[in-house]
């Protein structure tokens, strides 16, 4: 593999960790939009550990993951009286607030970011950590707690009626989400050599949702393949930092990603990879695509209303 391909895969795998964190929090029924912030907190903690205390990478990963998970738990406890869309609103605001606070703290490097972090992340570290995260999630889904979490994610009221504590589920959802996002953050900080307040801001959040929604939000595989696939699509649109791909130049790639997500949500709200194998019906699918473009008015999902 050329260094370019390696670096793209590394970045994609780092993002896939954050997306897996987003997956597990959403799967537990907690509507959180603060994973960019949790990633950033992990990045700052891991970066500080590496720079100030010169700890080895593995320890710095642990420090970052632990700090982000702790922050997630605190957030879950503070916000325990809100849920649903309101919870989402507040997590956005907290993320933005933390980002602006980091930008104003001179000890964290202010708006320049915290830099001088050793460049230890490589493809091996990224893929190793992503593998641990993926396997961890797949195993966790089979445990008693994991099943309870998925049940609560489907229907909170029913889950509560059979004795599942929603507060416990929420804390675990935020804890695991923070843990995975924090791992991603540490890797990102050691990949770029710095971590900036803008990495934490709400402006980054859509990216993780694009990965997850396109990949599929029913399994951890969706988070992994969604990140890799969409990140490669984005690189393809950029075409190696120069020139053009078809009629698009590199400034076009972000709005195209936004459009890809909107279309995915409309055509296949559960994402490309689901728990069942993909059933491909080309005729029906192409009519649906025409429908998205406003050319064909077919059966709609909300025609019961």
């Amino acid at each position: 593999m050329t260094p370019y391909v390696q670096s793209v895969f590394t970045t994609a795998l780092i993002y896939s960790l954050v997306t897996m964190g987003l997956y597990i929090t959403l799967a537990s029924g907690q509507f959180s939009i603060a994973h960019g912030m949790l990633m950033g907190i992990g990045g700052y903690a891991g970066g500080i550990a590496s720079v100030q205390f010169r700890v080895p990478m593995i320890l710095s990963l642990m420090v970052g993951a632990f700090t982000a998970a702790l922050f997630g738990v605190v957030m879950a406890l503070v916000l325990r009286r809100t849920s649903g869309v309101l919870l989402a609103t507040v997590t956005i605001a907290i993320g933005q607030g933390v980002s602006l606070t980091a930008a104003n703290l001179n000890s964290l490097g202010g708006s320049q970011g915290y830099f001088g972090i050793p460049l230890t992340t490589n493809l091996a570290w990224a893929s190793g950590t992503a593998l641990v995260g993926l396997v961890g999630l797949l195993v966790f889904r089979k445990t008693r707690l994991g099943l309870a979490m998925l049940a609560a994610g489907r229907d909170e009221t029913v889950a509560q009626s059979i004795g599942i504590s929603i507060l416990k589920i929420r804390i675990w959802g935020f804890l695991l989400g923070g843990l995975l996002a924090g791992l991603g953050g540490v890797l990102l900080a050691h990949n770029n050599g710095l971590i900036e307040p803008s990495d934490l801001s709400f402006a980054n959040e859509p990216l993780f949702f694009i990965f997850l929604m396109v990949g599929g939000l029913e399994t951890p595989w969706g988070a992994l393949f969604g990140s890799i696939g969409v990140w490669w699509l984005q690189e393809l649109l950029r075409f190696g930092n120069s020139g053009q791909f078809l009629i698009f130049d590199q400034a076009d790639r972000y709005w195209i990603l936004g459009l890809v997500m909107v279309i995915t949500v409309i055509v296949r709200p559960q994402g490309i990879l689901t728990r069942k194998p993909i059933v491909w019906n080309p005729t029906r699918r192409s009519f649906q695509l025409l429908g998205v473009l406003g050319l064909f008015r077919g059966r709609r999902s909300d025609n019961t209303s």
């Binding site: 949702f209 972000y254 709005w255 990603l257 936004g258 459009l259 997500m261 909107v262």
Partner: peptide, 13 residues
């Protein structure tokens, strides 16, 4: 929610 997030990302960029 995600659809409006996508629209927001699309419009801004």
């Amino acid at each position: 929610f995600v659809a409006t997030l996508g629209v927001s990302y699309f419009l801004e960029n």
